[in-house]
Deep mutational scan, measured.
Amino acid sequence: MQIFVKTLTGKTITLEVEPSDTIENVKAKIQDKEGIPPDQQRLIFAGKQLEDGRTLSDYNIQKESTLHLVLR
């Protein structure tokens, strides 16, 4: 499924993921596309910060959901 990741600069990254993918996994995909190390990434969905060990389905993230990427 496709999800979108919006950065603070207003750029939107499109990722191909599975509901069973972990947040860690998603961060690795963002690193592949954008070169941002996962340890600098914070992903936010519905106002919650997403934890590395959880999966997209844990957070009920469905196709075409938009996550927000904050760098630390």
Results as ranks from 00 to 15, higher is better:
28 A>R: 11
62 Q>E: 13
65 S>L: 04
57 S>C: 03
9 T>W: 09
51 E>H: 11
66 T>N: 04
30 I>W: 01
19 P>C: 02
58 D>R: 03
56 L>H: 00
33 K>W: 10
28 A>C: 02
66 T>P: 03
1 M>N: 04
17 V>R: 00
67 L>W: 01
52 D>M: 10
72 R>I: 10
48 K>L: 15
44 I>D: 14
48 K>T: 13
42 R>A: 09
61 I>D: 00
48 K>G: 14
63 K>T: 07
62 Q>R: 06
54 R>M: 15
46 A>F: 09
26 V>Q: 00
14 T>D: 05
23 I>Q: 03
22 T>V: 06
60 N>F: 13
62 Q>K: 09
49 Q>H: 11
26 V>I: 10
13 I>W: 14
14 T>K: 13
57 S>K: 14
36 I>N: 10
45 F>V: 06
40 Q>I: 06
7 T>S: 07
60 N>G: 08
3 I>H: 00
9 T>N: 05
57 S>V: 12
26 V>K: 00
33 K>Y: 11
35 G>L: 09
14 T>C: 02
56 L>A: 03
42 R>Q: 08
11 K>E: 10
67 L>S: 01
8 L>M: 14
22 T>W: 11
63 K>G: 09
36 I>T: 12
62 Q>A: 14
51 E>I: 08
5 V>L: 09
67 L>M: 05
2 Q>P: 05
25 N>W: 06
55 T>P: 05
1 M>L: 08
69 L>I: 04
42 R>C: 03
26 V>E: 00
24 E>V: 14
63 K>V: 04
32 D>R: 11
39 D>P: 05
58 D>E: 10
1 M>Q: 06
68 H>S: 06
50 L>W: 01
5 V>K: 00
15 L>R: 00
36 I>S: 13
22 T>D: 11
1 M>P: 02
7 T>N: 03
44 I>Y: 13
44 I>E: 06
14 T>P: 13
31 Q>K: 12
70 V>G: 08
36 I>M: 06
22 T>K: 07
45 F>K: 04
33 K>F: 06
16 E>D: 12
1 M>C: 02
3 I>Q: 00
59 Y>H: 06
43 L>P: 01
23 I>M: 11
44 I>G: 07
28 A>E: 07
40 Q>Y: 11
61 I>V: 14
4 F>V: 07
59 Y>L: 05
52 D>L: 05
52 D>H: 14
2 Q>I: 12
3 I>N: 00
3 I>F: 01
67 L>I: 07
72 R>N: 12
57 S>G: 13
30 I>R: 00
13 I>R: 03
39 D>T: 14
64 E>F: 11
4 F>A: 04
50 L>G: 01
30 I>L: 14
35 G>W: 07
22 T>F: 10
29 K>P: 00
15 L>A: 02
58 D>Y: 10
34 E>D: 11
49 Q>E: 15
10 G>S: 09
12 T>L: 13
55 T>W: 06
13 I>T: 15
70 V>Q: 04
37 P>Y: 12
63 K>M: 11
71 L>E: 14
15 L>C: 02
13 I>F: 14
41 Q>N: 03
35 G>M: 10
33 K>E: 15
14 T>M: 10
16 E>F: 14
18 E>Y: 07
38 P>A: 12
44 I>Q: 09
1 M>W: 09
47 G>F: 08
60 N>A: 13
26 V>W: 01
49 Q>G: 08
8 L>N: 15
59 Y>W: 03
56 L>F: 04
21 D>N: 08
55 T>I: 12
33 K>P: 02
8 L>T: 15
66 T>C: 02
34 E>A: 08
71 L>A: 11
12 T>W: 06
6 K>C: 03
13 I>D: 01
3 I>C: 02
37 P>V: 14
34 E>Y: 10
7 T>V: 06
31 Q>W: 09
7 T>D: 09
12 T>R: 04
49 Q>P: 15
36 I>F: 11
11 K>S: 06
10 G>W: 07
36 I>L: 08
58 D>M: 11
13 I>A: 03
2 Q>A: 14
9 T>I: 11
31 Q>N: 11
66 T>I: 11
49 Q>N: 09
68 H>L: 06
13 I>Q: 03
17 V>S: 05
70 V>T: 08
67 L>R: 01
64 E>L: 07
4 F>P: 01
2 Q>H: 14
34 E>F: 09
61 I>W: 01
28 A>T: 12
56 L>P: 01
64 E>N: 13
19 P>I: 06
21 D>L: 14
43 L>E: 00
54 R>P: 08
28 A>K: 05
45 F>A: 05
4 F>D: 03
42 R>K: 10
4 F>E: 11
36 I>W: 10
19 P>Q: 13
50 L>S: 01
61 I>Y: 01
59 Y>R: 01
37 P>Q: 15
25 N>C: 02
19 P>S: 08
40 Q>S: 14
41 Q>H: 05
24 E>P: 05
18 E>L: 14
3 I>T: 01
29 K>S: 11
7 T>Y: 04
29 K>V: 05
63 K>N: 05
48 K>I: 14
55 T>D: 06
9 T>P: 08
4 F>L: 07
